[in-house]
Amino acid sequence: MIEYKVKYLDDHQAGRPDRYESEHPLRVGDVVELDDFHCVCNIQRLQTIHRIDLARGCESEQEAILEAEYSGHL
C-alpha cells in the first residue's frame, strides 16, 4: 500500500481524513473517494511521504473532475 498525506485545496481540513492509502500509484487527474469524490490536482514528494492536493469534494467521479477543471486546478 502507498500512503499519501492529503491537502484539501478548497475545503477546510478540520475533521476530514488527512491520509489516503492506495494499492497503485496515483496520478494527477485521478479521482479518490474519501468523504466525497475528490480529483487529485497535484502530487508532491515530501521528505518521507507523498502529498496529494485534492479539489473540492463532489457526489460523483465525473463531477469531481469537472469541479477541478472549473476551479482551475487541472
Rank of each mutant, 00 (worst) to 15 (best):
M1C: 03
E3L: 06
Y4P: 02
V6I: 04
K7E: 02
Y8F: 09
L9D: 06
L9C: 10
D10G: 01
D10T: 03
D11S: 12
D11E: 14
H12I: 03
Q13G: 01
Q13P: 04
A14K: 06
A14N: 10
A14G: 09
A14F: 07
G15Y: 08
R16F: 02
R16N: 00
R16L: 00
R16S: 08
P17V: 09
P17I: 07
R19H: 07
R19L: 08
R19T: 12
Y20R: 08
Y20F: 11
E21V: 14
E21W: 08
E23D: 14
E23Q: 13
V28Q: 08
V28K: 04
V28L: 06
G29R: 05
G29N: 07
G29Q: 06
G29M: 11
D30T: 06
V32M: 01
V32D: 04
L34H: 00
D36I: 08
H38A: 09
C39Q: 07
C39S: 07
V40I: 04
I43L: 07
R45K: 10
R45G: 09
L46I: 11
L46V: 02
T48A: 00
T48L: 11
I49Y: 07
R51M: 11
R51L: 00
I52Y: 02
L54Y: 03
L54N: 00
L54M: 00
L54E: 06
A55W: 06
R56V: 12
C58P: 08
C58T: 15
E59L: 09
S60P: 11
E61M: 15
Q62N: 15
E63N: 15
E63P: 14
E63F: 14
A64Q: 13
A64T: 13
I65Q: 12
L66T: 13
L66R: 12
E67N: 12
E69S: 13
Y70P: 01
Y70T: 14
G72E: 15
G72R: 05
G72I: 05
H73W: 14
